[in-house]
């Protein structure tokens, strides 16, 4: 099996996997970062979203072979201690129900707010539309993204 060196949360990690292994499974099964979730495996739910060079992407769709030399950030590396404004907003609003989709939601929201720190309600809705929450906590997700934007502005 080929060895790939991935830069994850600021650290170089090497993995021995077949070239078609999606980043999602390399993270979960080889590197032991299980915060990134599997929901559909076909790019439809956003549970697996991570940042690659600052953009939120679906880690179930990208093979490890294409990830060398890129900066990958997972939920575990979003902040040192869970105090990223988006994480803070999520706690304040008490967003999660079952919680399973939330890492993906947070990763989508944080990359979106990096690019658009002052979004309208419609922009928030469009940005979050790719992330399914089966528990349908959508009202709170929307509220938490808006709150995070406020926190970032401060």
């Amino acid at each position: 099996m080929p060895t790939y060196t991935l830069k994850i949360n600021g650290e170089d990690r090497s993995v021995d996997v077949s070239s078609d292994t999606p980043l999602l499974w390399a993270l979960r099964d080889h590197i032991g970062l299980v915060g990134t979730k599997y929901g559909c495996g076909i790019g439809q739910c956003g549970a697996c979203n991570v940042h690659v060079d600052g953009n939120a992407i679906q880690s179930c769709l990208v093979p490890v072979a294409q990830m060398e030399g890129k900066e990958i950030t997972t939920i575990e590396g979003l902040s040192e201690d869970g105090t990223h404004p988006v994480q803070e907003a999520w706690k304040e609003v008490d967003v999660p129900q079952c919680g399973y989709c939330q890492a993906g939601q947070i990763m989508t929201a944080s990359s979106f707010l990096d690019k658009n720190p002052n979004p309208t309600e419609d922009e928030i809705k469009s940005a979050m539309h790719g992330n399914i929450c089966r528990c349908a906590a959508y009202n709170r997700i929307q509220k938490a993204v808006a709150l995070a934007a406020e926190k970032i502005a401060k």
């Binding site: 970062l33 299980v34 915060g35 990134t36 979730k37 599997y38 997972t74 939920i75 575990e76 979003l78 902040s79 869970g82 994480q87 999520w90 706690k91 008490d94 999660p96 919680g99 399973y100 939330q102 890492a103 947070i106």
Partner: peptide, 19 residues
């Protein structure tokens, strides 16, 4: 109001679920 007891773990991606 009491928040979700696992909130800290959920928002930081700690292992919690069966998977």
């Amino acid at each position: 109001d009491a928040g979700n007891v696992d909130i800290e773990k959920i928002v930081t991606g700690k292992p919690l679920f069966g998977l």
